[in-house]
Amino acid sequence: MTIRFTQDHEWIKLDGEIATVGITDYAQNSLGDVVFVEVPDAGKALAKGKEAAVVESVKAASEIYAPVDGTVTEGNGALVDNPALANTDPLGEGWFFKMTIADAAQLDALMDEAAYKSYVESL
């Protein structure tokens, strides 16, 4: 299983043909208590770097960007019903959506775990 990270603090984890996308622990910690999320419906075409989902804390609204090009296969309904999962389990139950990947090379170009860790430390 490959996990990659974006500079906007999304993670994407590939399992077979389907990738799962969420926000990192750093992201959830910066946002604070998540009170609302909007996830994309299955079938929606996503473009790398474009808005894919919405996350709102008490303080502010933020966009979640698609880490790569592809098509949504599922939005996380459990997260919509319980947005706090984004805080309590950002890399697990708090995932946002699953997608197919149009171009595997886009995934390889993202940061791996070690690179993301040093990126966060540099902020």
Binding site: G32, D33, V35, S57, V58
Partner: peptide, 12 residues
């Protein structure tokens, strides 16, 4: 201070 470790929701 915008928030403490407790967080906005729990502080409220």
């Amino acid at each position: 201070p915008v928030q403490y470790p407790l967080g906005v929701l729990k502080e409220h």
